[in-house]
Design a protein around this nucleic acid. Structure first.
Lengths: 246, 246
DNA sequence: TGCGAAACTAATGTCAGACATTTAAGCTTC
DNA sequence: GAAGCTTAAATGTCTGACATTAGTTTCGCA
């Protein structure tokens, strides 16, 4: 591991890159201990604070973890799916909000991906997945639920559907698409009629999954996408009209 | 922004979380300047190195950028799709390699997602996308190409297909699934016959996309998935046999 | 001899203060 | 008015120290 002396970037960034490359290339393997901060500062000819900044960068990406104490140090971290999920959700959410991605674009992406899970979900769903979906449907039908709670339950329903596909890679990739929609969905005010319609569509999807009916699941998702798109369109139209009068 | 005194976590981690929350919640908006390091260390009652470690954590996630000089400082960064792509690819690649995800699982996820793009790609593809796909197909047919270069070109072909869907959110989500497969694909040795078959399938897919034939595109991807799965299975079987004799 | 407590040690976590470097803005001079 | 100089404010880096944590070893006592 060595640095490029011609680079103008921060030393801590260069060091972080060097170590990251070593991890990616397999020179450093999972659970292996990195040299101590003092040793690293010797190796790279920089001070300990600089090394520490580099290590914090890597820790922020869950590439390493640190332990204090006599046998402590920095260790290459095995990135778990759980950690990767939450990182992905944060990034996706910010990506959408900061780049003013339209409701339509996000919706299209989300349902395109979700329909990709449909055949697998219909084939592999277990009783647990079905129970989770039914539980969320039940919750969504309860009166007095806030719009935010309704959206959160909607997300939980869809996550259960995705997880039913039984492919952790798929679940990981979709976590971002599904969860990042939530802030956009939260802009919508759901009437009782809207909710009833969505609950009915969720029910139809759950039925199709239970019967291992892949085309039916796809159709249900299509219908739900249409319904949601119309809701979003209405909200945007009303907002535009209001902005015009003001 | 305040810290929880009861927390046992690193101060720099707590500070990073506090600032991150402020960004996510919208208290800090894009391009807004954070207080200087000296001011932050006053606010949080910590030293400047500790503040700096916190800022480096945020910088590692592209949440902030820093500028030196008189009007410099840390600014809330607008996460671009480009940055998010590369982060996602790194995370996905490590996730797969560190968790020993099987070739079959990754392959299934990748093609399920890619087929989700097929209808959109067939509808919206531009001349540029078609040209990119054709160029990669041509490259794949050239003799003397290393297996690695062949895989890289394969990835480029699939990225062009995904981008043809014209949905940046979709492209972002799929970047991980497509690129993370490359290390797994690199384990395969492609015979001339294998390559010819793959090139033919790529050609069929490009034709279907050109003719805006969505079902044809899906079928082509299905065939390609089958072909790739068989190749992977062969490699694994041979490897298992070899390991047995040794 | 066995075991518990105390001391030791090596590592990360935090702090204080200093200097180096960069960059923009203001000032000065021609 | 424009070019160059000066200044100021910020980040980048270094040195050295102390605090805290958690294994490890050692010592003393029953």
């Amino acid at each position: 591991m060595q640095l490029d002396p011609s680079s103008t970037a921060d030393l801590s960034a260069q060091i972080a890159t060097a170590i990251r490359d070593a991890i990616i290339s397999g020179q450093l393997i999972v659970d292996q201990r990195l040299p101590s901060e003092a040793e690293l500062s010797d190796t790279f000819n920089v001070s300990r604070p600089t090394v520490r900044e580099a290590l914090k960068r890597l820790a922020a990406q869950s590439l390493i973890r640190t332990q204090r104490g006599a046998t402590g140090g920095a260790f290459v971290n095995r990135i778990s799916f759980e950690e990767a999920y939450s990182q992905q959700i944060t990034t996706s959410t910010l990506l959408l909000s900061m780049n003013a991605v339209s409701f339509e674009t996000a919706l299209e992406a989300r349902y395109a991906l979700e329909r990709a899970c449909a055949p697998l979900a219909a084939t592999r769903r277990t009783a647990d997945h079905l129970a989770a979906m039914r539980a969320e449907i039940h919750r969504q039908g309860q009166p007095g639920l806030t719009d935010e709670a309704f959206c959160a339950s909607d997300v939980a329903f869809h996550r259960a559907l995705v997880d039913a596909a039984g492919n952790p890679v798929l679940s990981y990739q979709l976590a971002g698409a599904v969860e990042a929609m939530q802030p956009l969905m939260n802009m919508i005010t759901f009437t009782a009629r809207d909710r009833a319609q969505i609950v009915a569509l969720h029910g139809a999807i759950a039925d199709a999954v239970e019967q291992q009916d892949a085309p039916g699941t796809r159709k249900g998702l299509h219908a739900l996408e249409e319904e949601t798109r119309n809701l979003g369109r209405d909200v945007l139209a009303k907002r535009a009209a209001r902005d015009k009068t003001n």
